[in-house]
Amino acid sequence: MGATIGLAMGIDVVEEDTLPGAEVLLRHADGAMLRAKQEGKRRIGRMRASREPARQAHIRRRLASAVDESALSLQYQPVLDLATGEDAGVEALVRWDDQEIGPVGPDEFIPVAEHTGQILRIGAWVLDQACAQSRAWTDAGTPRKIAVNVSPVQIAAGTLPSDIRAALGRHGVPAGMLEIEITEGIAIADVPAAASQLRELIEMGLGVALDDYGSAYSSLAMLRVLPLTTLKIDKAFIRDIDVEPHVATIVRGLIQTLNSMGVRVTAEGVERQEQLDILHDLGCDTAQGYLISRPMAPAEFGSTK
Rank of each mutant, 00 (worst) to 15 (best):
L63I: 07
L63S: 10
L63R: 05
A64L: 08
A64W: 00
A64P: 00
A64C: 01
S65T: 14
S65N: 13
S65F: 09
A66F: 13
A66G: 13
V67F: 11
D68M: 06
E69C: 10
E69L: 14
E69I: 00
A71L: 07
L72P: 06
L72N: 05
L72W: 02
L72H: 01
S73P: 07
S73V: 04
S73Q: 14
S73T: 15
S73R: 15
L74E: 11
L74K: 11
Q75D: 08
Y76N: 06
Y76K: 02
P78C: 01
P78I: 01
P78K: 02
P78T: 04
V79P: 03
V79C: 03
V79A: 01
V79E: 09
V79T: 05
L80Y: 06
L80D: 12
D81G: 04
D81F: 07
D81L: 01
D81A: 15
D81E: 11
L82H: 08
L82Y: 08
A83S: 14
A83L: 06
E86H: 15
E86R: 15
D87P: 01
D87Y: 01
A88E: 00
A88I: 00
A88Y: 00
G89E: 10
G89H: 11
V90C: 15
E91V: 02
E91H: 06
E91G: 04
A92P: 08
L93Q: 09
L93C: 10
L93A: 08
V94C: 09
V94I: 14
V94F: 04
R95V: 02
R95H: 02
R95F: 01
W96S: 09
W96Q: 09
W96H: 08
W96C: 13
D97E: 13
D98M: 06
D98T: 05
D98K: 02
Q99T: 13
I101T: 11
I101L: 13
I101E: 12
I101V: 12
G102W: 06
G102A: 08
P103W: 03
P103K: 03
P103Q: 04
G105P: 10
G105T: 14
G105Q: 14
G105Y: 06
P106F: 10
D107C: 14
E108M: 11
F109C: 09
